[in-house]
Amino acid sequence: MCASVDLVDGGLAVPFDVVYGGQTCRAFAIRWQGQVHAYLNRCSHVAMEMDWQPNRFFDDTGQWLLCGSHGAAYRPDTGACAGGPCRGGLVKIGVTEQDGVVRWHTAFNLQPFEF
């Protein structure tokens, strides 16, 4: 998917495509507190892409992922709703980081976050 150095803590995301529900959808990977996390780029409030500018998901503090359309906030480590008009959490995508490379699990069964 990308080189490890492409993901800076609280910085820009790296976009990629996945198949979800039989359709090709955008997804994104971010780094937060040293760990890589990836999610389907789809707000749980309204099924639309979240980035408020290209590849920007973090708020100004670098602590929350925000939906640029309605202000829903999500935890960067779990995708759980942290505030705003969420209906559940983000769909998490499994990733690994090894030898300076980040990869997503193509065989991973994408599941919505459950409480």
Rank of each mutant, 00 (worst) to 15 (best):
L12Q: 12
M48R: 11
D59C: 04
R42S: 13
R103L: 11
A27T: 06
R26P: 07
Q53W: 14
Y20I: 07
Q98D: 13
R56V: 11
H105F: 14
G79L: 03
C86E: 02
C25G: 07
A13D: 03
D99E: 14
M48F: 11
H70S: 01
A27V: 01
L40T: 01
Q33R: 14
V14S: 08
V91D: 02
G21Q: 06
S4M: 10
R56E: 12
G100P: 06
Y74M: 04
Y39L: 00
V19Q: 10
D77M: 09
Q53D: 09
D9S: 07
L65T: 03
H70W: 08
D59A: 02
E97K: 09
A82P: 01
I93D: 02
F28A: 03
R75C: 11
A82T: 03
A107D: 15
G34M: 05
C43Q: 04
Q98L: 12
W32H: 15
E49F: 09
G10W: 06
G94S: 14
A27H: 03
G88L: 00
A27N: 04
R103T: 11
R103K: 14
V36Q: 00
G71S: 04
G84L: 05
D51I: 00
G79V: 05
G84S: 07
G88W: 01
F16Q: 02
G34H: 02
G89Q: 03
N41T: 04
G88E: 09
L7E: 03
V101L: 14
A80Q: 06
V5N: 15
L66E: 12
L66N: 04
R56Q: 14
D77Q: 10
L90F: 00
G100N: 06
P54K: 15
L110W: 14
S44V: 06
W32G: 09
V91R: 08
P112T: 02
G88F: 06
F28Q: 04
R26K: 13
N55S: 11
V5M: 13
Y20H: 13
V95T: 07
W32E: 08
L12W: 11
E114S: 15
V36A: 07
T96H: 08
W64H: 11
G84Q: 06
V5Q: 14
M1V: 10
G10F: 00
E97G: 03
S4H: 09
Y74K: 03
L90Q: 02
G94F: 11
F58G: 01
G71V: 00
S44P: 05
G68N: 00
L7M: 07
D77W: 07
A82Y: 06
P54G: 13
P85N: 04
F113V: 08
